[in-house]
Design a protein around this nucleic acid. Sequence first.
DNA 1: GATTTAAATGGACGATTGTCCATTTTGCAA
DNA 2: TTGCAAAATGGACAATCGTCCATTTAAATC
Lengths: 213, 213
Amino acid sequence: MTGRRQEIRERNRLSLIEAVLDSVAEKGISETSVSEIIHRAELSRGMIHLHFGGKDNLVDEAARYSSEQYYNGIYALLETTGQTGQEHIEMIVRGDLSEAILNKKNVSIWYAFRGEARNRAAIAAFSDTRDAKLRNLVFNAFARIAKEAKVDDPNQVARDATHGTLAMLEGMWTDYLLHPDSFDRNEATRIVFRFLSSMFPAHFDLDGALSLE
Amino acid sequence: MTGRRQEIRERNRLSLIEAVLDSVAEKGISETSVSEIIHRAELSRGMIHLHFGGKDNLVDEAARYSSEQYYNGIYALLETTGQTGQEHIEMIVRGDLSEAILNKKNVSIWYAFRGEARNRAAIAAFSDTRDAKLRNLVFNAFARIAKEAKVDDPNQVARDATHGTLAMLEGMWTDYLLHPDSFDRNEATRIVFRFLSSMFPAHFDLDGALSLE
DNA sequence: GATTTAAATGGACGATTGTCCATTTTGCAA
DNA sequence: TTGCAAAATGGACAATCGTCCATTTAAATC
């Protein structure tokens, strides 16, 4: 059993991580100082060094945590849907563009870290991990779809569809970043499905996945 | 005629801007300090205040300059191509993914500024401008294509194609950011054209624009 | 209840930040 | 060539940065 001592310890640890994410979302990375973090976490100055050994490690940990949250969100959605390739894809697309995942806070955080990725190995590393996992999931779904669609070179088509779909979703996030208030989720979703229905007319239409007869 | 005095003045001004961009590309925004900038520009400490009134203004100006450079590059390419809609689109796609525009330095800079966009009004503002201009150019091209393709609701199709194409290009930039060494320009280009040829089979194939008979 | 020890505190510290201005340099006009 | 003014210099400055540790607090154990 976890003693009260360890429980408090972990709560404080988490408070620091969440304070970093809140600050990054609201003020950006360059204004996320130690003073800012400990003020938000309502903890004392020494805690960062105690728990993480330094500010940089804490920030890396916060980035990792945030990435994990995103991925858990997508995974949870996949549990709730059917098993066909097009259902998986539909769920990923809708999930990635849903309010729960694509919102001002997450976008601010994600782009702030992306901006640092080139210069911080730790951040670049799991930014990759997220992509690799998701990419694999999407590819497997498209591989099934491409096979069913009997296209020439189904492997290449599946790879292109994966790459193209993820790229388009990335671009929608950028759109949201730059115009969070005028961004239209339904329009963004429809555009992705327009792409998919052009490529696989038997599997998708503008509204999402089709069930094959 | 520009006197030698003014000429030196403007050269120094530009040196500061380029020093900022070099530093942002190499070290990131958070490590781009006044000391770093003036060291790179080989100028004295007071110059930033003299020319720009402060560091923040200089950084904003550098971001504006960088955005202008991007846009000029795309525009220059458009001068060299034909006048059909699909030729314009092809040139924008190829240009946006070309070594001259999509390279490590530009990507580092662009994402660094994007990461700050949410928290710096000046940077967000022209980040928008770039998008609005380019978007308009692309939309006009797709509007012609959609009309020729005789689709239902050509206006909506053109809007979706514009949105989808730009989103996909954005996503390719992100890909390049995260995997600059394994990124394959030809593959990225082919995927965009796969999307376009699915939507407008009479205007595009996997290799780019088709000329209508 | 007394003792032990892990956890948390908060201030001291040197380094670095961006700003600003008294001084020096230098191009240009008289 | 001299005098003027614009431009550039570089160090002083207060503010803030992140680190670290001597001290205090409080949970766990005896």
